[in-house]
Design a protein around this nucleic acid. Structure first.
Lengths: 236, 236
DNA sequence: CAGTGGTCTAGACCACCGA
DNA sequence: CGGTGGTCTAGACCACTGG
């Protein structure tokens, strides 16, 4: 299966993976040392090191300087859950993305915003609410608060051609983000804006992005449960 | 020459990250070539290569053989969504995990199971339904179908001391998984088992795990929306 | 064509672990 | 102490890209 021209380090990785997935090497077993693999494959140690280092990064094995490499206890099957720009996502599916801006305003920071954005109580904060459509169907309501210090021109942006995510990325390079994913019912206002019933469960992503010293933005993204799901897969 | 405080390749990575997060290098800008960085830092090319290669793996830059390295258009906000064992998860939070088995039986494969598990129509399939409690509060209903070819002893396992996830990990090494996350209402039976209202939205994870040639198991995990959320964070 | 990244070598020194 | 992995060098050849 491995192509003849596949790099040596890939062949070593494939070999080790095969030993693990076939059960020849069980969880907890020690993997041959770099010196041993070097002999077995007739390559330099750097090449073996790269192969095993990458397997460790993938979580298949754990390494201990001085003691050795062992097959990881749990082959953690995991996958990158990426939080992406909605426009990109829709276009990638071959559909058309449109957007309707419902609010674009300045509000005064209350206690919750002080906590979330790190601004002073009563300080001005930008607020936008918009609905994103995929081929005309509402799939996301985006309720966002923006720290003016991170994006002073936010209110004058053209959100017909640029999404808030795109705009914020351009003027406040991302350094950190936190998010949570939960299921809940939409508020009456949200249900109306999305054109769904009040009792339709939604996937709600709350995302807080940090750019350098500022918390740039906090977004509440509401997805109708019937129209959206996150998917992912993973293979060894 | 390299400072003893941190490896040279880490210092190079830190430098490049700083240029990106501070906005000196914008998305789409080309990053200095390996030869240039090699000169700048006075290290060998292998060291520079490792640093930039890892940044590419992290998604901060994209590399094109022959043309060069550019700052990635979107800094993916992403996090590992791991397939984890619920018992581990609860214990890690310092709480007590208990489990009530509602069903443990053999069923006959219908069309949906044929599709999901790759068994023949009418073939026997193991089926288990259990509720997991965190400090006595129901947080997950696990409805699982298991391919007997992957875990012949499934029905005789003691699920008071071992979770299905643990059991399957041990006897069917994982090679592949697919999942989807969505928001939906529980079925009447599920609501009753979890002790929640029929109208309480739930986070539903459907997960299909593959071990070698077999699809080992398909699980439907129902989390009461009020009691569970997925969280993640990301930092450059 | 010259420049880029992808891979690889045959050494090397170091920090760490277990006996 | 010998064995392990972590890092690094100063070369090298290759495949690919661009002008």
């Amino acid at each position: 299966m491995p192509t003849r021209s596949s790099p040596a380090f890939e062949q070593i990785k494939t070999f080790v993976k095969a030993q693990i997935t076939s059960g020849v090497w069980q969880a907890g077993d020690t993997v041959p040392s770099e010196a041993a693999l070097q002999q077995q494959f007739g390559v330099s140690r750097m090449t073996v090191n790269r192969a095993v280092k990458e397997l460790a990064a993938e979580g298949l094995v754990t390494r201990q300087r001085g003691s050795g490499t062992v097959v990881a206890q749990w082959h953690r099957i995991s996958s990158m859950l990426a939080v992406r720009d909605i426009h990109e996502e829709v276009v990638e599916r071959g559909h058309t993305h449109t957007c309707r801006v419902l609010r674009l305003e300045v509000v005064v920071a209350d206690a919750a915003l002080v906590q979330a954005l790190g601004v002073r109580l009563g300080a001005p904060v930008f607020h936008s609410v918009m609905v994103h459509f995929e081929d005309g169907v509402a799939i996301q309501l985006e309720d966002r608060h923006v720290n003016p210090a991170a994006a002073p021109g936010y209110l004058t942006a053209n959100f017909q051609t640029t999404t808030p995510t795109q705009y914020l990325f351009a003027c406040a390079p991302l350094t950190e983000a936190r998010y949570s994913i939960e299921a809940a019912l939409p508020s009456a206002q949200e249900a109306k804006s999305l054109g769904i019933g009040r009792n339709e469960p939604c996937l709600i992503i709350t995302r807080c992005t940090v750019s350098g010293a500022h918390v740039a933005s906090q977004a509440r993204l509401v997805y109708p449960g019937m129209r959206y799901s996150l998917r992912g897969n993973f293979a060894l």
